[in-house]
Design a binder for these strands. Sequence first.
DNA 1: GATGAATGAGACTTCATTCAT
DNA 2: AATGAATGAAGTCTCATTCAT
Lengths: 206, 206, 206, 206
Amino acid sequence: MEGVPTKKNSQVTAAPARRGELLATAAEVFAEQGYKATTVRRIADHAGMLAGSLYYHFDSKESMLEEILRTFLDELWDGYDAVLKAGLGPRETLEALVTESFREIDRHRAAVAIYQKESRQLAGQERFAFLAESQRRFEKTWLETLERGVAEGVFRDDLDVRLTYRFVRDTVWVAASWYRPGGQHSPEEIARQYLSMLLDGIAVRE
Amino acid sequence: MEGVPTKKNSQVTAAPARRGELLATAAEVFAEQGYKATTVRRIADHAGMLAGSLYYHFDSKESMLEEILRTFLDELWDGYDAVLKAGLGPRETLEALVTESFREIDRHRAAVAIYQKESRQLAGQERFAFLAESQRRFEKTWLETLERGVAEGVFRDDLDVRLTYRFVRDTVWVAASWYRPGGQHSPEEIARQYLSMLLDGIAVRE
Amino acid sequence: MEGVPTKKNSQVTAAPARRGELLATAAEVFAEQGYKATTVRRIADHAGMLAGSLYYHFDSKESMLEEILRTFLDELWDGYDAVLKAGLGPRETLEALVTESFREIDRHRAAVAIYQKESRQLAGQERFAFLAESQRRFEKTWLETLERGVAEGVFRDDLDVRLTYRFVRDTVWVAASWYRPGGQHSPEEIARQYLSMLLDGIAVRE
Amino acid sequence: MEGVPTKKNSQVTAAPARRGELLATAAEVFAEQGYKATTVRRIADHAGMLAGSLYYHFDSKESMLEEILRTFLDELWDGYDAVLKAGLGPRETLEALVTESFREIDRHRAAVAIYQKESRQLAGQERFAFLAESQRRFEKTWLETLERGVAEGVFRDDLDVRLTYRFVRDTVWVAASWYRPGGQHSPEEIARQYLSMLLDGIAVRE
DNA sequence: GATGAATGAGACTTCATTCAT
DNA sequence: AATGAATGAAGTCTCATTCAT
């Protein structure tokens, strides 16, 4: 009888510049200190306002988190979908997905770090069900690509595919924990090296 | 001075068995919910007692965390040091270290997960300086091994060593986030597959 | 100095029509949710403006409340005074006062409901001393009427007069909590029935 | 009876002495200031503790309110049900119900005052649905009694029954707003006078 | 007249911790 | 060893109010 989630009126639609700035600030702090350990006051400090003032823009600390993650995932999937629609072979798909991921890390470093750290706990909450949903699509996409690669003989068939999937997934995303945008390596450069390790290994071929 | 058991040292000596159980419980909850998000009351619930009762055994929530991490790192370095003393070649050293790491994940899954998630923030606090110290030794150990491997021609020399280091490090430890002891793969088996991917890549060699 | 309208008196003179509308809106919301529980924002919502905009018209939330109650009481006493000046007998006076009260409820339902609910707490504040004053006049008026009636033999002398006073007073005003203007009974009709119950009781006479 | 504290940690069942005292204190303050205007700190002050300490005993301010009202209504209905089971005639039933109500006011003055003031707004919330339910039973009980009385010729048939119902209902309960236990009139004495006014009116019979 | 953004005080609540029993 | 009750600091959030535009 009460399943209709009435979104607090205009806060989602009215999204001028300030909103975005505040979200970026919040994301930075969340990423650095962890969501729970971040106080609303700290975010406000970083933004140069008082804690209560944030509530003019957002319903709650949690809603900031949600919007940060939603925005990131939406953009991520835009990128992924473009790749998947291109109809590439499995190896090229994998390369494109990994490269896209590093670009995303470059653009949304904080959001990725938050996602990486808090995702598991959040996914249980109704409000963050979209995280679990995204994770499922993620897994499906990667597994299919890997399996296609094995079938076509471009990926090794002596490895547990699920293990490989986790290996690839973690390998890429954890990079968000140390990556700093504007460093000496461009995301594409990092992607290239990662792909090289991932595909060919770090050992010298005899 | 020794004949007068102060509260402080009574807490170190009293009923070591119960202590261990409580720490294991705490670690489990910390790993699942995050340190900050875990309430002392929740730990006590899991242990079948009231929140206040925990303070008979421990000084504080933080001291539980410290003891959990210290115990884990001590054991980890025992294992690592044994490997390093063995005087193996770089590739064998790497294999042994990775295998040892998976064994540690198997034994201290919760502690590893906590370490993985909280380490960066904690390392700044004086009390947890040992984490930063451990990290430094860790980095040194791995970098040396990798560089030795490059020098001896067993590891590729066209890769950024620091990037490789991070790749290897993350790759191994993140496994703690999905690993469940008693699953179908033994730690050694997982280590073997990981090493295979790491060393030879997931692509088929032409 | 009179040629320079300060903010203060601009608030008294500006656009009297809008003021009245806003007060009516505010009264409605106060009556429905209680004064304390009513947020300025809610009033503004009902009026189709933003919360801050109300402060162009009024000094404060409290001043709205004051004006609502003052307006109501002023009008109420105009009616009462007219009745009292008419020099009627006690029974006719009582009938006229009750009828006048129901007319007031009809006209200022919201204000009456607010008065009913908040009066006691407000009366203590200096600003709302007029409520206590009104209550005193009220009590005096009714007690005199009742006592006159007892003395003249038209009201029973076996009842505690103060108890009777409270009975009559509450009986009439609580009606504001369920009365809806424009319903099937006119205020005069309701007054007639109330008076009938009040004067003759609900039991059948033997 | 009191010396046997049940070891349940459930806040509803574990109801030793302190709980009851605190609820009585809270009820007093709620009644005096209104629920919304009452701060948790004020309740705590009255109880001689800090605001936060209340949360050892109760989940929230709202849950205190709920328990106060529930307790009162449960007891009220115990009394009413006993009356209704006695199989009295309509006039005797009305007399017994009114008398029972005044006894309840005597025992739970604060709760009654709260009920009187906040009931309407609360009834909408899911949590306080029991208020609406109680109100329905209340209305049904009184209407039936009044209708039975009209049918049997002991109550007047020229009055709107619903209007009479409201008249009786309000008349009785509003008394809680001025009643002070331990005053000069016992609840039975007040009930007698109220019944006399209600049944026979305040006018002298010719 | 009204908006958009912010302030500042204070509300409810949480929680690690203490301590007498 | 453990409980029951309380403390005190801090956290999230609410809201009347202000003010430049």
